[in-house]
Design a protein around this nucleic acid. Structure first.
Length: 571
DNA sequence: AGACCCGGCGCC
DNA sequence: AAAGGGCGCCGGGTCT
């Protein structure tokens, strides 16, 4: 059995072509043509040791999913790996399509990446329906040969990383990012269980009945708007308009710097309270109301599109539906199917633990060896004041200098010199125009040309350039932590997916599966009788991720795990 | 009418 | 003095 098989679906039809490869990417025998690609893939997958090599999961895996009897175990996603490699090689942001990588390999002009479907630049025409067209290969080029060649080149570039440890970690990143592509495609296909009836009831309680005329304000919102108008003297204004709101308050002698709710909460006037309430409800109505339900949550499932590596730090992004910003109150609508349960697990205080592991600060690691990190930090350095401990550490990780946190930072610097030195070195690198990397080797973007102009001009005067340099320092300071946390989360996801696939089930339809992933939190939808085993699998996956990403560290990454019927009951 | 930016706020 | 990192999405507002 070949360890790797390159796979290219036919653009129109169920067939495709396959090419067995060795681990270096060298073809083992001739390519094969399959009239039914799903059947051929399923047959080759039997023992679960194949690593499938494809141009991109959205064109190769997503169309296959409905026709596969079970999920695939492993893949190498050329587009995602190309982006990782380019950044690592100092070519951040170069086009990453199969065609672009192929063109670079042959010294030909490199085609730009096509805009994502659904984005502003995309015409969303028919051509986007045929995913292979997005690969940007020149006419006449053989897609299978291109996949084989680009994969071999990527393997070569991986081998070229000199340092053994760095190479091993980067390979782990490549595998974890690719596993993410599998998870993202599967979660988009399966969807998050979503009870439209409960969602509807919640909306009705909060906003009033669904308006008959789409686009008009539901009753409670309309009432609030009217009350607000009365409270500010009765002259009509649109509460959705920032400028009109500022003017309406100013007319009553209340000068606001903005209409942000934290500022309104400090204003002692009935209108301020009404406006805060209006904004809260209006947000739910416009962002996750009935229109959202019609567009995204039909047939009992919410189906967003996840974008693996969509954030430079390696966090995922989403396209459409605001999948990663579901208001907590609406988690009430996420309910397991009858006979099924949700296992909800989130990493407790992930980022400070990542800082402890990255910096190998012995003192901070001791606070991160057990339960509540902030509690331990408070006990050892802040006279038991947990709030101060948390504020100080978050400020250190985000580069905050405002408020009263100066003394807190000084305490941290004194007690945890290695940890503070780590983030401060990252900040200095950024301020100087350098790049930093995550634990596994994901490299941050370099400064823009604008940034370089701005900071050079600032050599003589500390103005916009100095501000810009400090902003970049905050970015790189946070990047090392956020991106290393994303490394860990991806490793967790990959390990968990593998463990779920190994659970004994009667058939694929009874298999526990991931339905949600949000930075440091996972939700698994599982038959009720397997829920305890899933909870064990999540904990084991978290510890496996710790070992893989950070090696021998005393830092622990505990999860808060809940087995629930409804997502809202998890916290 | 459509492109674009901004303020604001949801999530981590 | 300056003043917390990363996103996506909405409506308003402005420009073309």
């Amino acid at each position: 059995m070949a360890p790797r098989i390159a796979l290219v679906p036919d653009p129109h039809g169920p067939g495709g072509r396959l090419q067995p490869l060795d681990d270096a990417g060298t073809p083992l025998g001739p390519p094969a043509t399959a009239p039914d690609l799903a059947a051929a893939v399923a047959a080759a997958e039997r023992d679960g040791t194949v690593r499938w090599v494809w141009a991109a999961a959205d064109s190769a895996y997503a169309p296959l999913l409905p026709r596969l009897p079970d999920r695939l175990a492993r893949c190498h996603d050329l587009r995602l790996v190309e982006a990782l490699l380019l950044a690592h090689e100092g070519r951040f942001g170069a086009p990453r399509s199969l065609g672009a990588a192929w063109a670079r390999l042959h010294g030909l002009p490199v085609p730009p990446d096509l805009p994502e479907p659904g984005s502003a630049e995309s015409d969303d025409g028919q051509d986007t329906l045929f995913a292979p067209d997005r690969l940007q290969l020149p006419p006449g080029a053989d897609p299978l040969a291109a996949v084989v060649a680009v994969h071999a080149e990527q393997q070569r570039r991986l081998t070229a990383i000199r340092d053994d440890g760095a190479r091993a970690r980067f390979r782990l990143l490549v595998a974890a990012e690719s596993a993410g592509a599998l998870v993202a495609a599967e979660m988009a296909y399966d969807g998050l269980p979503w009870r439209a009836d409960i969602h509807d009831r919640l909306l009705t309680e909060l906003l009033g009945p669904r308006p008959g005329v789409p686009g008009s304000r539901p009753r409670i919102l309309a009432d609030l708007a009217a009350e607000l108008q009365q409270a500010l003297g009765g002259r009509p204004f649109n509460p959705d308009s920032h400028t009109q709101v500022l003017r309406a308050f100013a007319d009553r002698g209340i000068q606001l710097g903005s209409t942000r709710s934290w500022e309104l909460k400090g204003v002692d006037h009935p209108a301020a309270r009404l406006l805060v309430r209006y904004k809260e409800l209006s947000r739910i109505h416009t962002a996750h109301g009935w229109a959202w339900q019609d567009a995204w949550a039909r047939g009992g499932r919410f189906r967003p599109e996840y974008v693996v590596g969509g954030v430079v730090s390696g966090r995922w992004a989403s396209r459409g539906g605001g999948a990663l910003q579901i208001p907590r109150i609406l988690r009430r609508a996420v309910v397991a199917d009858p006979g099924w349960l949700l296992v909800v697990a989130d990493a407790a205080q992930l980022e400070p633990r990542v800082l402890a592991a990255l910096s190998q600060d012995a003192g901070l690691a001791r606070t991160a060896a057990g339960g509540d990190l902030y509690e331990a930090l408070a006990a050892s350095a802040f006279h038991g004041d947990r709030d101060k401990a948390k504020l100080g550490l978050l400020g250190a990780m985000y580069g905050q200098t405002s408020g009263d946190i100066g003394p807190l930072l000084n305490t941290l610097r004194h007690r945890y010199p290695a940890a503070m030195g780590y983030v401060e070195a990252a900040a200095r690198t950024g301020e100087d125009g350098g790049v930093v990397a995550s634990r596994l080797g994901r490299v941050c973007p370099p400064p823009s040309a604008d940034w370089l102009d701005l900071t050079e001009a600032a050599e003589t005067a500390g103005d916009a350039g100095g501000r810009s340099a400090r902003a970049r320092g905050r970015f790189t300071r946070n990047f090392v932590i956020q991106a290393s946390a994303a490394d860990w989360a991806l490793a967790l996801l990959a390990a968990l997916r593998r463990r779920l696939a190994a659970l004994p089930v009667a058939g694929p339809a009874d298999r526990p599966h991931l339905v949600f992933f949000q930075h440091d939190e996972v939700v698994v939808h599982t038959p009720a009788n397997l829920a305890d085993e899933v909870a064990v699998a999540v904990a084991a996956a978290a510890d496996e991720a710790r070992l893989l990403v950070f090696g021998d560290t005393p830092v622990r990454f505990p999860l808060t795990t809940a087995v629930v019927d409804c997502y809202a009951d998890a916290k």
